[in-house]
Design a protein around this nucleic acid. Structure first.
Lengths: 339, 339
DNA sequence: TTGAAAGCGCTAACAA
DNA sequence: TTGTTAGCGCTTTCAA
């Protein structure tokens, strides 16, 4: 293994000059710097991270905790986060908790001491999670706790747009098919939709219970939606919408004519399925990138003794309505006709 | 921060006893061990990983390099790998290289020194990748280099099954829509299909060039498939199959009647799209788990005192044909008849 | 069975 | 601008 000593010897300088030349180039004469760099490159020197961490107290790596990597939503966020971490020259530990609050707390406890900070994406048990972190830099994605930096999408605005779209098509009774019970995103989306509907006295929202945020959840919800008498439905995410459409079709119902469906997230499945889903688009990759940026900011800002993290709160990311083929004007069933 | 010294003081022993009691309990009298453990728990002691790594030379973490986390294939592998790493009490660094060979080599160079070993999933530049590892434990997934442990699926068997299925339906001209040029999986699948067809003199395989392993790749391939005169097609993966179906439909062709389509991987999109895809199923999660198991075995094999795990070469994972609705007997267009 | 002591490779305070 | 030096917290001989 090549160490600073080898590089120092080869470049004819001391080990501290090597360290400086590599970590704080401006503190070294340019000629020396070049000599050191060349020697390092020649010998194939790679700094030992463990030693640097031990000595300097920061690890150059961050953590990302997500409920389920197989969910395209979180995969996209993870991709953005990891990309940005790389650009910051840092590593990223990604941990998938399988939607399990116990695993989540456990993951954080394991991650916290060996990283410079953690991004918690859609935490399933935020209080416990934050406890496990004891004071380490953290950024919340899709969650909200007083005093903790967070990054989120503008769900309220999105739902507003979705509802206006449906209303303009002539829908007056809209169902909402919710996600996991503990989910903060679910509460936000639900509240956003209800709030939007409150502005009009000709639109009513029917809220339906907690469903798994996957295809199965949508399948399970479909019959309730039909029974609710709604002519349009907004789902917690695209996967749920896909399951919903699937089950409706199995019952002989047509989307969008018998029921209009709006998904959420515009994950890539939305455009693959039949019919392609009208959905709310969030730039997930960007969400991941932002989260890491904020973490880096608060991890390097909050380093000083005494003063707390200043890091301004970022504005929510825009949520855009993407209209595809799963929404249309309702068909009037005047008296049980087959049309 | 609580250190071994604090625990030692509190338990009335030396720091070496603390270290031993925690890391090698059998080398410490049970009474002492208990005392140390209690003290550690009381003080909330968490070993400093960096220090342990620096001193002991192993990190308790592994690396996983994948080309694209947003691809459900790799997401599934990553999930399995991370699950298994957790069960081994180790961490897992997941790095997404965006299908870029340079980033791949770079990722490995960064990962290698700070992990106990790396899983390379579908490497895009294996030779460079292995070079960057210089001798560290590694396991290849979907790749093959002499002398390097690997985990793979039985693509040959899978292709055999796919071809038999198509032949039984009455197809005699089958196209193969390939994945990335550098892809080992692509070569395997291609060769498996060609090999299978060689057993029958009434089936012919038409090989089509390299396409991106995504929806766009399938869209790009569709017109070539039609022009090839094949009545059935096997694609590099499900995503490509989805793109293919999409483009065929846009041209007014029907799947499966005008063309039968077989996907690969049975990623969850396969059952979501219309028509649901006939595809080759690989248990990806298991693939990820196996890879980590092999890595752990070979990483600790070199170090262990006695003869514990001899790391046998794992047999390829079964590949199963899942028949859904995208395959059917070919329709005879004898002279433009509509049947 | 336990303790003393020697570093692992690096950074950063201090000196020159 | 550069060098000297003292550890960071831990594991692991070696002795007792």
């Amino acid at each position: 293994m090549v160490t600073v000593h080898d590089v120092a010897r080869s470049a004819g300088v001391s080990i501290s000059t090597v360290s400086r030349a590599l970590a704080a180039p401006e503190k070294v004469a340019s000629a020396t710097r070049e000599r050191v760099r060349r020697a390092a490159a020649e010998l194939g020197y790679r700094p030992n991270r463990a030693a640097a961490v031990l000595r300097a107290g920061r690890s150059g790596a961050y953590g990302l905790v997500v409920p389920d990597l197989a969910n395209p939503y979180f995969a996209a966020v993870a991709k953005g986060a990891q990309e940005r971490a790389r650009e910051h020259g840092a590593g990223l530990f990604i941990v998938d908790t399988d939607e399990d609050p116990d695993l989540e707390a456990e993951a954080i406890r394991a991650l916290a001491p060996q990283t410079d900070g953690v991004v918690l994406c859609s935490p399933r048990a935020a209080d416990r999670a934050l406890g496990a972190l004891d004071g380490r830099p953290v950024v919340l994605v899709n969650h909200d706790v007083a005093g903790v930096p967070a990054v989120e999408a503008d769900h309220r605005g999105g739902m507003q747009r979705a509802l206006e779209h449906l209303r303009a098509l002539g829908h007056h009774r809209v169902a909402y098919v919710g996600g996991p019970e503990r989910s903060w995103s679910d509460r936000r989306r639900r509240a956003g939709l209800v709030e939007a509907s409150a502005r009009y006295d000709d639109v009513e929202v029917v809220e339906l219970g907690a469903f798994r945020p996957r295809v199965e959840g949508g399948q399970a919800a479909a019959d309730l939606v039909v029974a609710s008498g709604a002519t349009a439905v907004v789902t917690f995410n695209d996967l749920v919408a896909v399951g919903l459409v699937d089950r409706l079709r199995a019952r002989g119902l047509d989307v969008p004519h018998d029921l209009s469906v709006v998904g959420c997230d515009d994950s890539y499945v939305a455009s693959l399925v039949t019919p392609p889903l009208t959905t709310l688009r969030v730039d997930l990759r960007r969400l991941g990138r932002h989260a890491v940026d904020r973490l880096v900011a608060s991890a390097s800002g909050g380093r000083s003794t005494g003063a707390e993290t200043p890091v301004p709160d970022a504005p929510p990311l825009d949520v855009e309505l993407v209209v595809r083929s799963s929404t249309a004007p309702p068909v009037r069933h005047s008296s049980g006709g087959t049309l």
